[in-house]
Nucleic acid binder design. Structure first.
Length: 644
RNA sequence: GCCGGAGUAGCUCAGUCGGUAGAGCAGCUGAUUUGUAAUCAGCCGGUCGGGGGUUCAAGUCCCUUCUCCGGCUCCA
């Protein structure tokens, strides 16, 4: 028997008789690790715990604490679910069933082709069956088979999806995993046995095209979550419930922020006074910061001649998101899906010198895009929205500096609103594009260089750029850890070319500027939706539509309450008064329900002392303040843009 | 757009086998003058998403259409 050396993550080394398995390695390390072990990484590859190791290797044991360990757990859960479905509905065909570690609520799914339509009642049945299979504690067994043979078997068994997948691979063999009577072609790895999956919840069933292509058949997808302990599942379900409570669509109605009504149309937002106030504050801050950071503000119309969009390339490359043109005195006009051609026209209004560059023009520009009915979602996906747009026209030598500047400016904004975690993506040339490949490469390199200069970690998103240029997308993480796309920074060599814009260079020749398109918050609609969910409707003082509400205890205190209100308003605070014929408990309840950050309770005692009894939303009574102290405190919170 | 689910008062929801639509909250009016998350009473409020059909009779059964929800695809 030969000896092999296993290197461990702490750089320790141990000798074993070959072949050894990760399970055995775990046992020699500690009994608790052996119990927690789900899978292992051997020389960088995730494998089963009973994977035979026959040469010197580096081994790391995966537990629930490793993302890869959880992924194995959820992948096995998908298999478990598929086996339960097959026991209940034997004529089901399996398509694909992976773990989805990045999703907020669901952690795995399986796409199934079955004659009967699944309902929630059937999900419960499947869950029960899964629990039964868990209690059987069936081991997951791996075996390999010849790929071409397997394809034949799939075909004769009518397993068209598996056959299609296997026929696209090139390996000699394919692997199968079985537990009990259930077998599925799968790369693995899997848990040692079904008994590990102690707690399962199937969340929903939904349609999903085979391979995500709408030309293909629509399958039924079951989403689920699973955990090694019941308690963890309960906590997870609670988190989903918490997210549901924060849903901006419900908070938007309950807090009287906005509405979207059928009479106006799908995806078209009505901003109510309270929501519009929040937007106004965001926009005022945005404008002030832009003006202070080398931007100038511009405005442009909502429609323009169709020809403008022909020049820009939108009618060719963006047609599916644009509304039909409308004839005005025999000329076709088009409602704008983007602001860029207008800013280019402003640029073109006179001869530009290299000395003027960079030119930075910002506009809160409202655009209209056709979105298919099924994708609309509250404020997050709408058909009319206002981008916090800007276009920077610069010389090639200024490009990287401008992008870095934009990134830094952007991070300042996001941090001010309370977002500290980001995922950054660099999106490269898509299938449909304008311009030359060289131009694209140049633009992509500029973005890459800027990201590296700004020291941001990023991932490359191949083929996800816009038709006129590559882009940096920044997704922010909210308080619940969900990520949202807001910022986009795009480099564009193409529109300057298409519109033939120029500047006089230092040497007197004509040169072409480069454009940077950027939206930092993305759109006012989406950003507002994200803010609502991030804060669960509890806006910080600087953003709250109503910062403080004066609550007189009795009518007798009303004159003093009016005086307090006038003083608060006089200090520039957004204050209201509740003079309804209700008891103080009810007034407090109403203000709490509207999530007003501060309440000033005033009765006889306060009137006599010239004070207010302050109450903090969600926290309760915080004691008596003189009117001046109260104003000073609130103005301080507002000025600091404090988030608590 | 596609698959599945759901639409009853402003909101949350009842409504049995097909037999003249109901509650709480909100709103209005009045009483009450109240001390840190709901005072009491009365009143108003509905072509049961729209259209069509079956039936003596439809919120209920059938067809169709719109909107919303969960996803897929797409995206700020």
């Amino acid at each position: 028997m030969s000896k092999i050396e296993i290197k461990l993550p702490d750089n320790g080394r141990r000798e074993f008789d070959a072949p050894v398995t990760p399970a055995l390695v775990a046992q020699t390390l500690s009994r608790s690790l052996a119990l927690k072990a789900l899978a292992a990484v051997v020389d960088g590859r995730v494998v089963d715990l009973n994977y035979p190791i026959s040469k010197d290797s580096e081994v790391r044991i995966l537990t629930w604490d490793d993302p890869q360990g959880r992924e194995v757990f959820w992948h096995s859960s998908a298999h478990l679910m598929a086996s339960a479905v097959l026991e209940l509905f034997p004529d089901t065909k399996l398509a694909i069933g992976p773990a989805i570690p990045d999703d907020f609520s669901a952690k795995f799914y399986y796409d199934l082709d079955m004659p009967q339509k699944l309902t929630d009642a059937e999900l419960e049945k499947i869950e029960k069956k899964m629990a039964e299979i868990v209690s059987r504690n069936l081991p997951f067994d791996r075996r390999e088979a010849n790929r071409l043979e397997s394809i034949k078997e799939f075909r004769s068994a009518g397993d068209i999806y598996k056959a299609e997948m296997a026929s696209e691979w090139s390996d000699e063999t394919v692997s199968f995993y079985s537990h009990g009577n259930f077998t599925d072609m799968c790369r693995g790895p899997h848990l040692p046995s079904t008994g590990y999956i102690k707690a399962v919840k199937l969340l929903s069933v939904a349609g999903a095209y085979w391979r995500g292509d709408e030309k293909n058949k629509m399958l039924q997808r079951i989403y689920g979550v699973s955990f090694p302990e019941r308690k963890m599942l309960d906590e997870h379900l609670q988190k989903i419930e918490e997210a549901r409570k924060r849903d901006h669509r419900f908070l938007g109605r309950d807090l009287d922020l906005f509405s979207i009504v059928d009479d106006v149309g799908s995806g078209l937002v009505l901003w109510h006074p309270r929501g519009a106030m929040v937007r106004h504050i965001i926009e005022a801050f945005w404008k002030e910061e832009h003006l202070g950071n080398g931007y100038e503000i511009v405005y442009s119309p909502h429609i323009a001649k169709l020809d403008l969009w022909n020049t820009s390339g939108h009618t060719g490359f963006y047609a599916e998101n644009m509304y039909s043109p409308m004839p005005i005195e025999n000329v076709q006009y088009e409602i704008k899906p983007m602001n860029c051609p207008f800013h280019i026209q402003i640029y073109k209004s006179k001869t530009r010198s290299y000395r003027e560059l960079p030119i930075r023009w910002a506009e809160l520009g409202t655009v209209y895009r056709y979105e298919r009915s099924g994708v609309l979602h509250g404020l997050m996906r709408v058909r009319g929205f206002t981008q916090d747009d800007a276009h920077i026209f610069c010389r090639p030598d200024q490009l990287t500096v401008e992008i870095v500047r934009t990134i830094e400016f952007n991070l300042f904004f996001l941090r001010t609103f309370g977002f500290e975690d980001y995922d950054v993506f660099l999106s490269t040339r898509p299938q449909k594009f304008v311009g030359t490949i060289e131009g694209w490469d140049l633009a992509t390199e500029a973005l890459r260089l800027a990201l590296e200069t700004a020291k941001l970690n990023y991932q490359v998103d191949p083929g996800e750029g816009v038709f006129y240029g590559p882009k940096i997308d920044i997704k922010i993480k909210d308080n619940l850890g969900r990520s949202w796309q807001c910022t986009t920074i795009q480099v564009d060599f193409n529109l300057p070319e298409r519109f033939q814009i120029e500047y006089s260079a230092e040497d007197g020749t004509r040169a072409r500027p480069i454009m940077i398109h950027r939206a930092l918050l993305g759109s006012m609609e989406r950003f507002f939706g994200i803010l609502i969910e991030h804060y669960a409707g509890n806006f910080p003082v600087w953003l709250a539509p109503e910062q403080i509400r004066v609550l007189p205890v009795t009518d007798e205190a009303a004159p003093y309450a009016e005086k307090v209100l006038a003083a608060l308003k006089g200090a520039g605070l957004r204050a209201q008064i509740d003079i309804s014929n209700e008891k103080i408990g009810k007034k407090i309840r109403d203000a709490e329900s509207l999530k007003v950050p501060y309440m000033a309770v005033v009765g006889k005692i306060e009137a006599a002392a010239g004070q207010v009894a302050l109450r903090r939303h969600r926290a309760g009574d915080i004691g008596k303040y003189s009117l001046d102290q109260a104003i000073e405190m609130l103005k301080g919170l507002e000025a600091q843009k404090k988030i608590d």
